[in-house]
Design a binder for these strands. Structure first.
Lengths: 343, 343
DNA sequence: CTGTTAGCGCATTCAC
DNA sequence: GTGAATGCGCTAACAG
């Protein structure tokens, strides 16, 4: 249309230089006029370049949170099958900071085009991000973000609002003034679980803001030790008879649902987070009243999609990307498609 | 890979005949082995054929339900920009059965490759479907389905469960035993609003099933006459002092939210359906407590996407397609991306 | 600085 | 019944 050959147009599109002003202006004019948008699938067709993307998260367990993130990433790779990207997946034990440190050091020493980081340990992430900044390797966070870092983007739910919402939901379905239990996984001494801190803050803020005087009773329990679950829970409920509802601000709510099931407890309301297999079971069977979903599949999908588009076109990227907080009940769970964003 | 030329492979892929048994078996073998899936975007690249799709729904109003369906359809057309589909959009007045009849007659006389029908009038839809069956034109329904028809597929939420859920939500946030108002748009005599009937059934079934004795008070109001809203509502609330909450089983809930706002009413809980502009306003400003979304954008998107894939590949299509029922509160509405399924 | 050419996966057309 | 040739939008490699 501008009387310029495709080779030159391509150079203009990709800012590869070696183009005369006159040609550039003529072509950019036309691009404007026809509102040109490259088709990434067809770009992929002819693109020879391969991209190497490192993905690091805590270890995957079937039906758990981090697996969903990875499933979302896989879906993005399928959607953009024409773009050749090689993934290196490196996971670590989220309860062992040394295992994380080892993996992050390996990544700091690697060459890659981009990194996807599922954040857990704050200080470690900070250090890795510095390394990547130096080497000019773009990185994105999923699940939560970390202060004082320079990611290309992050994909997370609003954890503060999540806690706030949980408070609102639980107080709306328990009798006024009854006590609320709060299950807490005691991690072996670390600064991590930024998400839980934010949620807890949102939770308390709701109660103070609304002047609600339901007493909150902490239910500490040792996350790594399933044998002692029952013992600890038995003791808790013996000591607290006024509990009208329980909230679990991490993804481990299914443990309580299972406990209620085995003990035949039906009169304590339960609000939990994340669509893990046990949580979904608890919701379907009436032990969990509200389950909050934070679209982990979508987070992973968006992270990879954003990276691919950035690597190919170097478009400006939105830094903050908050996903939905889905409120699920036993009525709606069967219609909840986890890959809605793909179909 | 099979030592067969691309022309022959194409004949096999599309069942065009003129292929020897031996070649077919050899190629199908390889297709299996490499798990061949055609890439629809690239198919579109080389496809010359144009498709003509007729879309018929009630008239569009900005920020209303049917507009969302159309937006979803548009998004599908953008995603599959390589496939040339010409859309003919024909809308009618959903409160005037004759206007619908006229449009449907026009469609029955047209030639097209497929039709998307936003159902409202049952009998009219039934008649149109018969015409399309005769002419072998595939059609899909959005919003709801109609019995005794043979659509290729339908895309809808579960309206019965929607009503059931509304009952659960409203009763969980109002005092035991307080009355529930139910706003009803009185349509000018027709058998339509199948969706409202299903929702009402779900609503009542929840109450009887749970042995809840909140009295339900019907609030009839004339849908076409906004001038009389206040009068009718004033009278209703004067006559009923025990109303603890109101439900609106159609998308017109925003009217009540606005009424509560103007009258300074803050102590009546409200549960509504559909993310129309007034409803979202009501939710954000605390007049609506729960808003149920039924993903109209996704319904439209899936309808068009399904049609395109069917027209091109003649794949088997899933008949029943239920979308999510999203429960939104003022906390989560800001994170609700209506085109989640695209990004 | 610029234009030509080839090829990605796929469907079509036409000559054998 | 079959294969070869062409072109869709785009990038890469190379010859000027």
């Amino acid at each position: 249309m501008a009387g310029i050959s495709p080779g030159t147009v391509d150079r203009i599109l990709h800012n590869r230089g070696n183009v005369s002003e006159s040609a550039r202006i003529a072509v950019e004019d036309i691009l404007q006029k026809v509102n040109y948008r490259p088709n990434i699938h067809i770009t992929g067709l002819s693109l020879k370049r391969k991209y190497k993307v490192v993905i690091t998260t805590p270890n995957l367990m079937e039906g758990e949170y981090w697996e969903s993130i990875h499933l979302g990433i896989q879906h993005a790779l399928e959607e953009f099958e024409n773009i050749r990207v090689e993934c290196i997946i490196l996971t670590y034990n989220q309860y062992d900071i040394y295992s994380c440190r080892d993996v992050y050091e390996e990544i700091a020493g690697m060459e890659s085009d981009a990194v996807i980081i599922g954040t857990t340990f704050k200080e470690e992430t900070l250090r890795l991000s510095k390394h990547l900044d130096e080497k000019d390797i773009p990185y994105v966070f999923v699940d939560s973000t970390v202060e004082n870092t320079l990611p290309l983007a992050f994909f997370t739910s609003d954890h503060y609002i999540c806690g706030f919402l949980i408070a609102k939901l639980i107080t709306s379905i328990i009798p006024d003034g009854s006590e609320i239990g709060m299950l807490q996984a005691v991690r072996t001494g670390d600064e991590s679980a930024n998400t839980s801190i934010l949620r807890k803050r949102g939770f308390s803020d709701y109660l103070t803001q609304k002047n609600i005087d339901n007493n909150v009773r902490k239910m500490p329990f040792t996350a790594m030790d399933p044998v002692q679950y029952d013992e600890q829970l038995d003791r808790f409920f013996q000591d607290h008879h006024e509990i009208g509802g329980v909230v679990v601000l991490n993804s481990r709510g299914g443990i309580l649902a299972d406990y209620f099931y085995r003990k035949g407890i039906r009169d304590i309301r339960l609000v939990c987070v994340d669509l893990t297999t046990p949580n979904v079971w608890g919701l379907r069977n009436g032990f969990i009243d509200f389950l909050i979903g934070q679209e982990p599949e979508h987070q992973g999908f968006l992270a990879m999609k954003t990276l691919i588009e950035y690597l190919i076109y170097r478009n400006p990227v939105k830094l903050q990307n908050y996903v939905r907080l889905d409120i699920l009940t036993r009525e709606t769970i069967d219609y909840y498609k986890r890959f809605n964003f793909m179909n």
